[in-house]
Design a binder for these strands. Structure first.
Length: 564
RNA sequence: CGGGGUGUAGCGCAGCCAGGUAAGCGCGCAUGGUUUGGGACCAUGAGGUCGGCGGUUCAAAUCCGCCCACCCCGACCA
């Protein structure tokens, strides 16, 4: 490709909107352009890179036994009602009506359609295992797109679905996919770590995310400094301290004027925060929920959402709290009626807690779960944080940020049950297929690759996903020899299967070098009067500082060797 | 949805507070010339619904109201 003809120009100044490195570089390099919030056009350079990523994924999916197909973006709302996920996705679902007023959705994912396909076509255990995938556009009406290509509303995703006869077979498919994913990231020269994850709106049991560690990542990863435990903070657990056993004491009301926060109450009464129970109020799909958790811990809203199985969850407003007759700052589950109570299991890890008295400026000492109050749900809803103890080995937990570049789930029979996707086993019994699903966001992968491979001058493409291999820089295009040699090299390299972007523009050396660094092709090859004096071209790897002179007739071989 | 911010040429910005000269600057773009190893220089030129609608006024980029778009934080989110 000739730079003089290529669509998409590099910018000297970065559009003010871009915050993250990958977003800035993608814009500055003229690779993407925003059309609306979270909606982008991919210009030729970005598209080439994306196609390479796509091909790598396709090859690995095929190698793992996947069969590629294509399902529609446009889907009837009914199948979403059938699975119940119109509710789970809520406002994230793009919906529309056709001319006959039929309600349609733009698919955010394809479990429903694939399950429908499976139930129509799979009859027998002999048809299983089955692994199907597609590389398709998804639509999600994200509340807030951000970070350039990291979180968008329209994006390309590889989504793969496995169908097995039982959990054991699913485990095999799952491991196969995990391996395929590792291969994909390795082939893209990306370092991705596997973490335990929440399965979110997709549903299901086990789930793992592949994270590219990056400061600008939108996910927080909790990991152990001593063992290999790592999990998305949404799902991460911690070993909660167990207070010393003591005899239950009678409840005692004490005046606590002005003390409202856990901090204030603990200080006022001279106890540590873990001797108190805090109260938090949420609104879950419009219903007010009372949450109680030990004072030294915070509520993890994802865990809470899962416990409640609700769609919309938010902190209750002051008005809602007041309306429910609750006394913010002095509330507790003691004597509370007519409101759903969810507790963190930490309320069991100690005795004689300080709680609110449900009237202003008063608290109750020596309160104990079961004896003094009951709850509707008790489970782990605590947020794990850096500094907490590892649930596996007791080591210290740490925190970092990452970009989620892949997510795999064991769905089990959630969809096959709801959508009646059954098969007949060896003994003639009807059973639901056991499913898994496996996604990779391509654009996000591209962004993550840039986050992980750049310097202050621009992108440093890993060879396998670089738009072109070589940036052939013809320096001094008014010199006949420079032009003829660089054109000859261009043709020769292309004939050898090397992808070349030739900078044939009439620009100064500075401009060309800067663009070469910005666009970040793995190899820069300079043809200039200076180099031609020794009948050579100057070769420099993007990631290196030094260049070397390579005799013209050896360039092609040298490059083949370098690009391997 | 809550909080904060921004909208003036392709990109980056000034002008707005305190209404009034002819809507400016840098980069980029076009033409000509001089340059040519790390974002050159000179000259000439093209390019604008000042986000939109309405209001106030003799007069609005500037003041007021409503709306829209986009960005950031939060909420939310494979």
């Amino acid at each position: 490709m000739r730079l003089s003809k290529m669509f998409g120009k590099t910018l000297r100044e970065v559009p003010a909107d871009a915050e993250t490195v990958s977003h800035q570089l993608l814009l500055k390099a003229g690779m993407v352009q925003q059309v609306a919030a979270g909606v982008y056009s991919y210009l030729p350079l970005a598209w080439r890179s994306l196609r390479k990523i796509e091909q790598i994924i396709r090859e690995e999916m095929n190698a793992a036994g996947g069969q590629e197909l294509s399902m529609p973006v446009l889907q009837p709302l009914e199948i979403w009602e059938e699975s119940g996920r119109d509710f789970a996705f809520g406002k994230g679902l793009f919906t529309l009506k056709d001319r006959r007023d039929r309600r349609l959705v733009l698919g955010p994912t394809h479990e429903e359609v694939i399950t429908d396909l499976a139930r129509r076509n799979v009859r027998s255990y002999r048809d299983l295992p089955l692994m199907l995938y597609q590389i398709q556009t998804k639509f999600r009406d994200e509340p807030r797109p951000r970070g350039g290509l990291v979180r968008v509303r329209e994006f390309t995703m590889k989504d793969c679905y496995s169908f097995d006869i039982d959990e054991e077979a699913l485990e095999l498919s799952y491991q196969k996919m995990k391996e395929a994913y590792r291969n994909i990231y390795a082939r893209c020269s990306l370092e991705a770590v596997v973490v335990e994850a929440d399965s979110g709106a997709i549903g299901g049991k086990d789930s793992h995310e592949f994270m590219v560690i990056a400061e600008t990542g939108e996910d927080e990863v909790i990991y152990c400094g001593d063992c290999d435990y790592s999990a998305n903070v949404e799902r991460a657990e911690c070993a909660k301290s167990h207070l010393e056993e003591e005899a239950l004491l009678p409840m005692e009301e004490v005046a606590t004027p002005g003390a409202r926060t856990i901090e204030e109450v603990a200080n006022f009464l001279g106890v540590t925060r873990d001797r108190t129970l805090k109260a938090v109020f949420y609104s879950a799909d419009g219903e007010l929920i009372f949450i109680t958790i030990r004072g030294d811990l915070e509520v993890n809203e994802v865990k809470l959402r899962n416990a409640l199985k609700c769609s919309e969850l938010r902190l209750a407003s002051d008005e809602e709290v007041k309306e429910a007759g609750l006394v913010a700052g002095s509330a507790s589950a003691v004597g509370l009626k007519g409101i759903k109570i969810v507790a963190d299991d930490s309320i069991n890890l100690g005795q004689n807690f300080v709680v609110g008295a449900n009237k202003p400026d008063a608290h109750i000492k020596n309160t104990n779960y079961r004896r003094d109050f009951k709850v509707d749900i008790i489970t782990d809803i605590a947020q794990a944080e850096a500094g907490h103890r590892c649930p596996r080995c007791g080591g210290e937990l740490r925190s970092t940020r990452g970009i989620e570049v892949g997510h795999i789930f064991k769905l089990g029979t959630i969809f096959s049950q709801k959508q009646a996707a059954f098969y007949l086993d060896r003994d003639g019994n009807q059973k639901p297929m056991v499913m898994g699903c496996y996604g990779i966001g391509l654009g996000r992968l591209l962004a993550a690759a840039i986050e992980q491979n750049h310097d202050e001058d621009g992108i440093i493409w890993p060879v396998p996903i670089a738009p072109y291999h070589v940036y052939l820089c013809a320096l001094g295009v008014d010199d006949q020899q420079v032009v003829s040699v660089s054109e000859k090299l261009y043709t020769e390299l292309e004939e050898n299967g090397i992808e070349v972007l030739i900078d044939d523009r009439n620009e100064s050396a500075g401009v060309k070098f800067n663009d070469a660094d910005l666009l970040g092709m793995p190899v820069r090859l300079v043809v200039s009067k200076r180099a031609l004096k020794s009948n050579s071209a100057e070769l420099k790897m993007r990631r290196d500082r030094e260049s070397e002179l390579v005799p013209l007739d050896e360039v092609a071989d040298r490059l083949k060797e370098l690009l391997g």
